[in-house]
């Protein structure tokens, strides 16, 4: 029996959270299901844009934390 895929399934597919078997079935579905394919294309575009944004933790804070960790280091004799 052919499984019916939802938009949530396509979302999992876009984020690579589907199994190899599911991937094959979803890719087949996207070939003939126009609505699901449109959804896939639209979401892919937004996800691509989101992936170009990045946030960076300040180096100064990272160094403070590492320094704190080193100060707590227990030296065994």
């Amino acid at each position: 029996m052919t499984k019916i895929f939802t938009q949530n399934d396509v979302l999992r597919y876009l984020y690579k959270e589907t199994s190899v078997e599911e991937n094959i079935e979803i890719e087949k579905t996207l070939l003939f299901d126009n609505q699901l394919r449109d959804f896939y294309t639209d979401m892919q575009d937004v996800i691509d844009e989101l992936s170009k944004l990045e946030i960076k933790a300040p180096d100064r804070i990272v160094e403070n934390i590492l320094e704190y960790s080193r100060s707590k280091h227990i030296h065994f004799i």
């Binding site: 979302l11 639209d42 979401m43 996800i47």
Partner: peptide, 9 residues
């Protein structure tokens, strides 16, 4: 997540 992406788009 779906609604977030749809809204953003």
């Amino acid at each position: 997540m779906r609604y977030a992406l749809i809204n953003l788009r």
